[in-house]
Write a protein that binds this DNA or RNA. Structure first.
Lengths: 156, 156
DNA sequence: TATTGTTATACTCTATAACTATA
DNA sequence: TATAGTTATAGAGTATAACAATA
């Protein structure tokens, strides 16, 4: 699994048992989240590249034009054009002519694309589920509470 | 911030207030961790690419040869050779001839490299710290406990 | 004339294969 | 002959610039 951080943690002395500072919690929690993310993303069960996975997930949420996808994913229109081309080629995405505007196409998932995306999501969840099974119920309850907080943190 | 997952969560009914299944916790927690990771990695304060950051972090932990770095980072020797070349060019890494084996060089961080790495780590921690400041002390305590658990989860 | 989307071209990071220098 | 490292070359994914078709 490639990129790790291997940091020297900001010295928290176990002998001096005090509540950690916000900075210490931030550092340790950040590394822990990034380790989880790396584990999922570099898992062997992934059968598609991250940027293509993202596009499938966006199209699962709603059908979009290429320009909309490029804006949401913050890549250039030519890049998105190429990604969409690959997904159409693989039979996961369909282009339908927009009846109101001949310049653009409405992109959406094919049944194959939906199935594939569901399998990939399941693989990611399985990676996590297998690892949570080693915890006690009480520990999982802590992580359940933490999930809500992490989402607030991520939202800024 | 590019790749999001935008998933449809596996239906947890708020009315039927029961303990979530492991699968539900796994799904929600995985997404939360990946959101945090994305937030950090795509933060504007990053001044170096992830693969170069990783190499600096490895060399901060210990001086290494190019072959060792390639093995640790799981990239090919030519790829690592190029990355090291970039970092040497930028003045962050130094090549010292190995006195015992003329074929290889010992790579280590220069003072500039150490400073730069410290600043980049600080920027990542700052991103997280700023966001934790909005939480109560009790909420931060939950996240502190969660950090330990997440590291166990990541370790498998 | 402005906008959607694609093609042309180039840069970066990755890889495998081939080469140089040293063991 | 085997190993450490680099150079040569090629394949993705990204970008900007230029072009086509449509509004």
């Amino acid at each position: 699994m490639p990129p790790a951080e291997t940091s020297a943690p900001p010295g928290r002395d176990a002998a001096t048992e005090q509540a950690p500072t916000i900075e210490q919690v931030a550092h340790d929690l950040r590394l822990a989240c990034m380790r989880i993310s790396r584990g999922v993303r570099f898992d062997q069960r992934n059968e598609i590249q991250p940027h293509l996975f993202s596009v499938l997930a966006r199209l699962d949420a709603a059908s979009r034009t290429a320009a909309e996808l490029a804006a949401i994913e913050r890549v250039s229109p030519p890049s998105m054009s190429k990604s969409v081309g690959v997904l159409v080629e693989r039979g996961f995405v369909r282009r339908d002519a927009d009846p109101d505007d001949g310049r653009q196409s409405i992109l959406s998932l094919t049944p194959d694309g939906e199935d594939f995306l569901a399998r990939q999501r399941q693989a990611r969840d399985d990676w996590m589920t297998e690892r949570l099974e080693g915890l006690t119920e009480e520990e999982r309850a802590v992580l359940e509470r933490a999930t809500v907080l992490l989402n607030r943190v991520a939202a800024g």
